Computed example of a mutant assay.
Amino acid sequence: MRRRFLPLLAAFACLLGGQASAQNWPSRPIRIVVTFPPGGSSDIVARVLADALGPKLHARVVVDNRPGAGGTLAAQHVAAQPADGYTLMLSNTAPVVTSPPLYRAPGYDPMTSFTHISYLGSTPMVVVTNLSVPATDMAGLMAWMRAQPAPVTYGTSGIGSVGHVVGTMFTAQTGIQLNHAPYRGSQPMQADILGGSILLSFDTLPENVENIRANRLRPYAVTSPARQPSVPDVPTTAEAGLPSLVALNWLGLSGPARIPTAIVDRLHAETAEILQTPAFQERLATVGIVSGQMSQPDFVTFVQNQVNTVGATVRSMGITND
């Protein structure tokens, strides 16, 4: 009889332990793992969020950049951590939606390996070139591409990034062949396009706002349905003649699977308050990120829909991690 009750007692003890852990949380620093190097849109949002979240939780919140393999290395790391609320991830389109289809075994499942906590916002891609490119609008840029003796090389922040997907979409929609140059994040790519080693990139807007405003890079279009307040003079892809070239990189807060509900609810509530503050909204808008809000269940549904639709599109494009 005693043996029969031992598994029940163990399960009950684990439940009580989880409740106690949630009640005492947080009692030590919290990490937000960023899937790309410092300076990118995910990194910008993670640092602004960490600064605002720390005082609300009465805990230190630190940012941990773990770039590589289209965000999958960081996602693998987070998925393997204890579900105690001390390791979180600045989730985004690449590691959750566009990168997993490129690998036979990415090491995690976009849904079952994570607890998706809060939607934070989104940002479009922007098509930019080095100033040596003579074209001044998208029609001229495509004419210039077609006139080149070899496919033009375009840079992105990595294989499986949203920029890579947009570059592949651009080729499919225009018939213009391009050569993809994946980088380990946007910062090294920015150095090369500014220096002229590559002449074209499809990249998230926040990494390019400063260079566009300073007239160091020439923008042609943003891949959003509407113009962006941070660069109001840059047309949308629809305005530039490519109405189907629409893509947004969403940003969210996630963690390992099975984080206690009490911790998830607390994180979502505190994040929701931060998202409503004008200071947070303005900081993100300044660099081209439009903040937004969803309930936690709606965010889970949103991510599942992205995995089902955008993930299927990536698979149909035949993009690989080679």
Rank of each mutant, 00 (worst) to 15 (best):
G163I: 09
L131D: 06
T153P: 00
S132C: 02
P182R: 00
N130V: 11
G167C: 06
W144K: 12
G140L: 10
G167A: 05
P182I: 00
H180P: 14
V166D: 03
G140S: 01
M169E: 12
G155K: 01
F170I: 05
L141I: 12
D137N: 15
G163R: 06
G160V: 06
S157C: 15
W144H: 15
A150M: 04
G140C: 07
A181S: 07
M142D: 03
M138H: 04
A143Q: 13
M145C: 14
S161K: 07
A143N: 08
M169P: 07
S132V: 14
I159G: 10
T168G: 07
V165R: 10
T156M: 01
T168H: 13
P182C: 05
A143L: 07
G160I: 04
T171A: 13
T153D: 07
A135S: 07
T174R: 13
T136D: 15
V162I: 14
V162L: 15
A139E: 14
G167M: 01
I159M: 11
R146W: 07
N130P: 08
T168M: 05
A139P: 00
T136R: 15
Q173T: 03
T136I: 11
G163M: 07
Q177Y: 03
Q148M: 13
V162R: 00
F170S: 04
G158N: 00
W144Y: 15
A143T: 12
G160L: 03
M145E: 13
P134G: 11
R146I: 09
A139H: 11
M138F: 12
G158Q: 02
A172I: 05
Y183D: 01
N179I: 02
V133C: 11
T156Y: 03
G155P: 05
V152W: 00
A172S: 14
A150Q: 14
M138E: 10
Q148P: 02
T153I: 12
V166E: 04
F170C: 08
A181T: 08
M142P: 00
G155A: 04
T171D: 02
L141Q: 10
T156K: 02
T168W: 05
G175D: 13
L141A: 12
V152L: 04
G163F: 09
S157N: 06
R146F: 11
I176W: 06
T129S: 15
Y154G: 12
A139S: 11
W144L: 12
I176N: 10
T156S: 12
M145V: 13
A139C: 05
V152A: 02
L131A: 12
G158T: 01
A143K: 13
I159K: 11
N179G: 07
P134A: 02
V166A: 04
N130S: 13
G158F: 00
A135V: 05
Y183K: 03
Y183P: 06
H180Q: 08
S161E: 02
S157G: 15
T153V: 14
T156G: 03
